[in-house]
């Protein structure tokens, strides 16, 4: 979840709220989610754990594979659970086995968890990812949360200077979110746009800069090199920046998502994943494989196309949803 501790206490407009309220920007949203979570766990117990036998493990594997968790991660999780049951560490009782499974899945999903770092002045976030995965929309949503709910001033950098109308798209999100926009000409150097945005933010004393980048396939090594360069140029403004480099992964993505995360991480050293489009029927199980294999945690999830449709990542909810019908 977004940890805004230090930021918020410096911000006058929210000072009156109690500490607990301030820390959890997404608290309200989380409460509404927990209802659906209950419904989900009930569903799981009904279908998956009628009895514990050979078939149980097979059905479990099937559920995880269908959620896109991938064969290796699925095998590892199910083996571990089966072993625990065989060893008597977990009683062979449907409800208990179910709870333990969710625990294991949540534990794996939580690998490498850390809050989003907004301590920089300004804090610089960079969004990267494959074409159409939801970078620009996510930036709009994050900007809205930071500015409307936290009272922070946000500058967006239109670093996608390649795709037609990409800057216009981000401009519209900036308008909706009440953020400033810094853009360059079409075809301009994306590093230069990011650089200018950060200097503008510093001049204005803005709190957060979010850099959009053009979608690219991880197999295009020249474009991956371009991305590393953008990151280096940003570091010329502020050595620790970008403080957060996030990759957007579309929840419908299959096993290729693991390659995406790996190659992007080699190029720009990812801090986290934004798992988008979870409002569809896809479970986004590839994020489990990404956490297990690469130690890159999900930090936020996207659940729709409006400003409000962003949520903190809750490993237990995610784990339960992976197994739901």
């Amino acid at each position: 979840m977004i940890d805004l501790g230090s930021r918020v206490s410096a911000n006058a407009s929210t000072e009156a709220e109690p500490e607990a309220e301030r820390r959890g920007v997404f608290k309200r949203l989380r409460e509404s989610l927990s209802k659906s979570r209950q419904a989900l766990t009930e569903e799981i117990s009904a279908s998956l754990f009628d009895r514990i036998d050979e078939e149980t493990w097979e059905r479990l594997e099937e559920a995880l594979i269908l959620a896109d968790a991938g064969a290796p991660t699925t095998a590892a999780v199910v083996e571990r659970l089966e072993h625990e049951v065989d060893a008597g560490e977990v009683p062979a009782d449907g409800a208990l086995v179910r709870d333990r499974l969710i625990e294991i899945l949540a534990e794996v999903a939580a690998t490498g968890r850390a809050p989003i770092d907004l301590s920089g002045e300004p804090a610089v976030l960079m969004m990267v990812g494959v074409n159409g995965t939801g970078k620009t929309t996510t930036i709009g949503k994050i900007a809205w949360h930071l500015s409307k709910e936290m009272g922070l001033s946000v500058v967006l950098a239109a670093g996608d200077t390649y795709r037609a109308a990409a800057a216009e798209q981000l401009a519209e999100w900036a308008r909706r979110a009440g953020a400033d926009l810094v853009r360059g000409e079409e075809g301009a150097d994306p590093g230069a746009v990011a650089f200018d945005a950060i200097s503008a933010a510093r001049a204005r004393g803005a709190d957060v800069v979010i850099v959009d980048t053009a979608g690219r396939l991880h197999t295009q090594s020249n474009l991956m090199e371009e991305l590393s360069k953008v990151k280096r140029v940003i570091a010329k403004q502020i050595p620790e920046a970008p403080h957060e480099t996030l990759i957007s992964i579309d929840a419908t993505t299959g096993q290729n998502g693991l390659r995406q995360a790996k190659v992007f991480s080699e190029a720009v050293d990812l801090d986290g994943v934004v798992l988008t489009k979870l409002d569809g029927t896809a479970k986004g199980g590839i994020a489990l494989a990404i956490a297990a294999d690469l130690g890159i945690p999900v930090k936020l999830i996207g659940v729709g196309e409006t400003l409000e449709d962003l949520r903190p990542f809750d490993p237990a909810e995610y784990a339960a949803a992976l197994l739901a019908e």
């Binding site: 269908l66 959620a67 579309d250 299959g254 029927t281």
Partner: peptide, 12 residues
């Protein structure tokens, strides 16, 4: 259809 789509492709 995106070539990277996973298991959900069928339902879609």
């Amino acid at each position: 259809v995106d070539a990277m789509t996973g298991q959900d492709a069928v339902g879609v």
